[in-house]
């Protein structure tokens, strides 16, 4: 193994670990912000770590079958595979993004979700299955505007290569895709609301309706891994959006800042809106964001 690939591997591992930590960090920050909005104190910043350690130190783990046991592992596999394809900066920080373009990233993202869904299925809890059905329906909804936005980007940059898209945005805020192509940006931001599964689109894991949805049957270690992967996934998704629409980042700290700022947006939207019904969620994405997306794509092509 050459030193170059060795460095790349080390950076990758660091990014993976860092994404876990950063994911937890912004998660607890969000919880604190939510608490402040509600005039509460909120949990300490280290709370997610405590939760994960606690879950990991549970004494019993119950499973309903092989898929429930394997599911979290596969989920972790899927998320890490997604993570390493997203560039987090320049040089080694592009990780392994030269092994797949935007389409690849978009598809490999679903790997983890499928694994999760399978695990939920094996658990045999109807609440979990309902949660998955809701989640998939929501995905079917928000993917349309999201795809429109991404296709617009590909059309504009003549490339599906994330690194190229980042490179095309250099030179100030005005050159960021979100601002240079406002329709595309708006579409992506609206689709992102669905992607982040915050309120008002948190019907998949709605605690009061379907227990906690997909994770109903998962406790202990399984839950711990799910929390970890969720944290990583949030970072991955946000990093991708930052790369695509907000000019990427020259170093990891700016990226972290951008991720955090971007994360605040669905959070605040969620604080304002109550949960949508499933049909409304689905139709919402297929109405306005899609319309805007089509306009954006039309502008991008012609």
């Amino acid at each position: 193994m050459s030193t170059d690939s060795m460095y790349r591997l080390l950076v990758t591992i660091a990014v993976i670990l860092g994404s876990i930590i950063y994911g937890f960090f912004i998660n607890s920050l969000a919880r604190r912000i939510t608490a402040r909005v509600q005039n509460r104190m909120g949990p300490p910043l280290k709370q997610p770590f405590i939760d994960v350690i606690k879950l990991y130190s549970k004494r019993t783990f119950v499973t309903h079958g092989i898929m429930q046991t394997l599911g979290p592992i596969l989920m972790l596999t899927g998320i890490i595979s997604t993570l390493i394809l997203i560039p987090y900066g320049k040089g080694y920080l592009t990780l392994y993004s030269s092994n797949g373009d935007l389409i690849t990233i978009l598809y490999i993202m679903t790997f983890g979700q499928l694994a999760m869904a399978l695990a939920v299925g094996q658990a045999g809890n109807p609440y979990g299955t309902i949660g998955v059905a809701r989640g998939l329906t929501r995905m079917f909804g928000y993917e349309l505007p999201l795809i429109l936005a991404l296709i617009s980007l590909i059309a504009l940059n003549h490339s599906a290569d994330v690194n190229v898209i980042i490179a095309n945005q250099h030179g100030g805020i005005a050159n960021w895709n979100a601002f240079r192509h406002p329709f595309v940006g708006i579409t992506a931001l609206l689709a992102m609301l669905g992607m982040m599964s915050y309120q008002p689109f948190d019907n998949a894991s709605a605690p009061a309706e379907v227990a906690s949805g997909p994770i109903t049957e998962f406790g202990g270690k399984f839950m711990a891994i799910m929390m970890t992967t969720n944290a990583m996934f949030v970072v991955a998704k946000l990093a991708l959006l930052v790369d695509l629409f907000f000019g990427g980042a020259s170093n990891i700290f700016i990226l972290a800042l951008k991720i955090f700022l971007l994360y605040l947006y669905p959070l605040f939207v969620g604080l304002v809106f109550p949960r949508f019904a499933m049909e409304d969620t689905f139709l919402f994405f297929w109405k306005w964001p899609t319309l805007i997306g089509f306009i954006g794509l039309a502008i991008a092509i012609f």
Binding site: L55, T216, F218
Partner: peptide, 20 residues
């Protein structure tokens, strides 16, 4: 659990299912 006493600052939160 609400703002006045806010048990979440003690690391306590509700969970929907007994598994967790």
């Amino acid at each position: 659990m609400t703002s006045r006493y806010d048990w979440s600052r003690l690391g306590i939160r509700g969970s929907a299912t007994p598994r967790q």
